[in-house]
Amino acid sequence: MSTRLFSGKEIKELYKNPYVTAVSNKGITYTDEFKRIFITENEKGKFPRQVFEEHGFDIDIIGINRVESSGKRWRAAYRKNGIAGLQDTRKVKSGRPNEKELSIEEKYERLKAQNNLLKAEVELLKKIDMAERRLGKKKK
């Protein structure tokens, strides 16, 4: 983590970005969507700084070291676990394993939630694919 602390004004500015879920004086929590966008754009050859700037982040506020370390961390997580590696699991994992046996209803609800998440990911990938196809046609 960077040693640079954000001022109150910088925190307010960062919260304006739709790709930020939380900001403290020490760090930024980015949306899972932005992480996926970052990986997609980076694989197309864009530099981390470019991706951040194109999505409304002020590099002077964030700092280039934070941009590069976030990119490095997300690429490693993506290589290791795919799209699932980019998800923020702090909301769902407390660090303690779930010891109780789940009821049929609880298992069903978990499967429904997992199914909805997969459907949303498929829709996002379809949108990305369509956008790439449109860009490909325009270049020709």
Rank of each mutant, 00 (worst) to 15 (best):
19 Y>D: 02
51 V>T: 08
44 K>W: 04
89 T>F: 08
108 Y>Q: 09
109 E>W: 11
97 P>C: 08
18 P>R: 10
23 V>R: 03
105 E>R: 12
7 S>M: 01
58 D>E: 12
43 E>M: 12
81 N>F: 12
43 E>S: 09
10 E>P: 06
11 I>P: 06
86 L>N: 01
102 L>G: 05
75 R>G: 05
6 F>P: 04
67 V>K: 03
55 H>K: 04
107 K>S: 06
73 R>T: 11
49 R>F: 10
73 R>C: 05
114 Q>Y: 11
30 Y>P: 01
125 L>I: 04
78 Y>G: 00
103 S>D: 08
115 N>H: 14
93 K>P: 00
12 K>W: 02
109 E>A: 14
118 L>G: 01
33 E>D: 14
48 P>I: 05
102 L>S: 10
115 N>A: 13
38 F>Q: 00
64 I>E: 14
31 T>I: 08
63 G>C: 01
126 K>C: 00
55 H>A: 01
114 Q>E: 15
110 R>Y: 08
21 T>V: 09
127 K>M: 04
116 N>H: 03
4 R>I: 15
73 R>N: 10
129 D>P: 02
94 S>A: 10
32 D>M: 03
22 A>R: 11
47 F>Q: 14
121 E>D: 15
6 F>V: 05
10 E>M: 07
25 N>D: 15
2 S>Y: 08
